[in-house]
């Protein structure tokens, strides 16, 4: 009995461990390559350990692109997007999940259907609009239109419908909380796991967006990190070292953000009011 539990557990960790290795190795590799001098990046057999070119790669990187500005733009756009998406989508998700109002089902269907429209060609009319608005080379076109995205509303609605118990809301009402009070004091704290998922997705999507900033923020000082990094990828004057370090530095904030949000996913509901 006991040994079978140990075997089971060992097997569980083995499966998880192998999968973790398969999933994580390429990322380790990105950081390893970032520390090798540009002319030694590609080697057979490949590098498994860190090299000594980090300082030189960094010097190359900041001399070729306004790295600090680009990093700041990327971070600013991603954070403002993430915060507004979490706020507006949780609010809308709460309404769709817990209120009954006229046209609710129709409006909800509309939200979901809007996600199914392939938006690939929207960039042309959208660009025209942004020129009229005078928003080119600003953060606005990458933040404002998506502040209450359909995806986030869909996600929050599905989660709140199940994980926000009706009696908690009823109890809050009896305690005299109004609609806004319930939203701020009950819904936001209790929706943390789903908000964390939404936060990660929004941040990642914004951070990795390439075509948007490429076209809407063409100035090198105004643009984001991935677009600026693509300059290093020119074919003839190819500095692999700076490029690899740029990739690694682009990845780092994403990993940190994920670790930060992902704590919320598990810890969110386990403690607190929902137990009852």
């Amino acid at each position: 009995m006991k040994s079978s539990i140990i075997v089971k557990k060992a097997l569980l960790y083995l499966i998880l461990g192998i999968m973790a290795l398969v999933f994580a190795y390429p990322f380790y590799n990105v950081f390893v390559l970032a520390t090798w001098p540009g002319d030694q990046v590609l080697r057979s057999p490949p590098h498994f350990f860190f090299g000594g070119g980090l300082a030189e790669n960094f010097r190359q990187l900041v001399s070729r692109i306004p790295f600090g500005r680009n990093f700041f733009n990327s971070l600013g756009i991603a954070l403002t997007s993430t915060i507004s998406v979490i706020f507006f989508c949780t609010m809308a998700g709460f309404a769709f999940a817990k209120y009954r109002f006229r046209f609710r089902d129709q409006l909800y269907f509309f939200v979901i259907a809007s996600m199914a429209i392939p938006g690939f060609l929207n960039i042309i009319p959208f660009y025209k609009m942004m020129v009229r608005f005078g928003w080119i080379n600003t953060w606005l076109p990458l933040v404002v239109p998506g502040m209450a995205g359909a995806f986030g509303i869909f996600l929050m609605t599905q989660f709140l419908e199940n994980s926000l118990p009706n009696d908690v809301i009823e109890a809050a009402r009896i305690d005299g909380l109004g609609d806004l009070g319930i939203l701020m004091r009950i819904v936001f704290p209790l929706a943390r796991p789903a908000m964390a998922v939404l936060g990660i997705v929004t941040f990642v999507g914004s951070w990795n967006n390439f075509t948007g900033p490429l076209i809407l923020m063409p100035k090198i000082e105004a643009t984001t990190l991935p677009v600026a990094l693509s300059l290093l990828n020119s074919r003839v004057d190819n500095n692999q070292g700076a490029l690899m370090l740029g990739n690694a530095l682009t990845l780092l904030p994403l990993i940190l953000i994920f670790v930060f949000f992902s704590k919320q996913i598990i810890s969110g509901l386990t403690a607190g009011a929902v137990k009852g």
């Binding site: 042309i124 025209k128 490429l214 076209i215 090198i220 020119s234």
Partner: peptide, 22 residues
């Protein structure tokens, strides 16, 4: 200058010209 990689440059230019913008 506004420099991009090969794909990015032509992608941007095509979009801006398709929108008939500057």
């Amino acid at each position: 200058f506004q420099t991009s990689d090969f794909g990015g440059h032509h992608n941007r230019l095509t979009t801006v010209l398709a929108a008939n913008e500057r």
